[in-house]
Amino acid sequence: MSAARFFVSGKVQGVWFRASTREQAQALGLRGYANNLADGRVEVLAAGDAAAIERLAQWLTHGPPNARVDRLQRDPADEADAGPGFLCG
């Protein structure tokens, strides 16, 4: 098991980014969450199979159709922080 925390910058709030991220993560069998941050970014924590996290990371570089991703920051994370499913906050 692996885990990663992503911070996604650009036009990522108000464009179904979190819900679309949840759909992608669930399809990949990942646990975690996607939350809007006060500074306009979206924080994503993903835990599960390393290859599935890489596939999610690739998807996060562009997101859903109405999004515009300017920057994707990736940090290590503790898989224990992910919880049992994938939530949007």
Rank of each mutant, 00 (worst) to 15 (best):
M1V: 09
M1I: 00
A3D: 07
A3H: 05
R5T: 08
R5H: 14
R5V: 06
R5F: 11
R5Q: 15
F7E: 14
F7G: 13
F7V: 12
F7C: 11
V8Q: 09
V8W: 02
V8I: 15
S9T: 00
G10E: 03
G10S: 03
K11A: 13
K11L: 14
K11R: 15
G14L: 05
G14M: 11
V15G: 04
V15A: 06
W16F: 15
F17E: 01
F17R: 03
R18F: 06
T21F: 03
T21Q: 06
T21R: 02
T21Y: 02
R22S: 14
E23L: 13
Q24K: 15
A25M: 09
A25P: 06
L28H: 13
L30H: 05
L30G: 01
L30V: 06
L30D: 01
L30M: 06
L30W: 04
R31I: 02
Y33V: 07
A34M: 11
N35W: 14
N35Y: 12
N36T: 10
N36V: 10
L37C: 14
L37A: 13
D39N: 15
G40T: 04
R41L: 14
E43G: 05
V44G: 07
A46T: 05
A47L: 10
A47V: 04
A47I: 03
A47M: 06
G48H: 02
G48F: 02
G48T: 02
G48P: 09
D49Q: 10
D49A: 03
A50V: 03
A50C: 08
A51C: 01
A51N: 08
I53Q: 07
E54T: 05
R55D: 11
R55A: 13
L56Y: 05
L56P: 06
A57M: 01
Q58W: 12
W59L: 07
W59V: 00
T61D: 13
T61G: 12
H62N: 07
H62L: 01
G63K: 01
G63F: 00
P65L: 01
P65M: 06
N66C: 12
A67N: 04
A67D: 02
A67E: 03
A67T: 01
R68G: 12
V69M: 07
D70I: 00
Q73W: 08
Q73D: 15
P76V: 00
A77H: 12
D78W: 07
A80H: 13
D81V: 05
D81G: 12
A82W: 04
G83E: 08
P84R: 10
P84F: 10
P84I: 01
G85V: 09
L87I: 05
C88D: 14
C88Y: 08
